[in-house]
Amino acid sequence: MPELKLEIQMLHDRLLVQLTQEEGERRSGGGIVIPATAQMARRLVWGDVLGAGTHVRNVKVGERVLFNPEDPLEVEVQGRTYLVMRERDVHATASERSEHGTGLYL
């Protein structure tokens, strides 16, 4: 049986996000290597928005969003894991260019 390709449309204020792949080890601003197994305080993570519901107002598909990884729900689609969350759970967005010209650039 051939594999079906389904289009996923997010509803209401929901976002479909894929976690940004980060390296296991990180470096602090001072150059200290922090291993992936190190216990840290609750840490926010970045993800890429792949889908947005019709009532999402401030986040667009293709932007990166900053959120708490303990809040969203996981879903598996064709062997890949994605996160589903509400727009209100997003703390910040990062896109190619901002119309307002304020904020930080990654």
Rank of each mutant, 00 (worst) to 15 (best):
I8G: 00
I34T: 04
L66H: 10
R43A: 11
L50V: 01
L19S: 12
S95P: 00
T37M: 07
L16R: 04
N58Q: 14
T93A: 08
N58A: 14
P72Q: 10
G24Y: 02
M85T: 09
R14D: 09
E96S: 09
L6M: 14
V56H: 05
V61C: 04
V45A: 05
L66K: 10
G31A: 10
N68T: 02
K60S: 13
V61F: 01
R88P: 00
V56G: 03
V90I: 15
R80E: 14
E63R: 02
E76S: 14
E7A: 14
A41G: 09
T93V: 15
L15Y: 05
Q21H: 07
E25Q: 08
M40L: 14
I34N: 04
R97M: 06
T81S: 09
I8K: 05
A94V: 08
L6P: 00
I32Q: 15
R42E: 09
G53Q: 05
E7T: 15
G51E: 09
G101F: 00
K60P: 00
L11F: 03
I34V: 15
H91G: 00
V84Y: 01
V77G: 02
V17Q: 03
G30T: 13
Y82L: 11
L50S: 02
V61M: 05
T81R: 15
I32C: 00
H100P: 00
D89S: 14
E23R: 11
V17N: 00
L83K: 10
N58E: 15
E87G: 06
A94T: 03
L4P: 11
R42F: 03
P69F: 09
S98H: 08
E99L: 13
G47E: 06
R64A: 10
A94W: 10
V45H: 04
R27H: 11
S98M: 05
Y82W: 07
Q9C: 06
T20V: 12
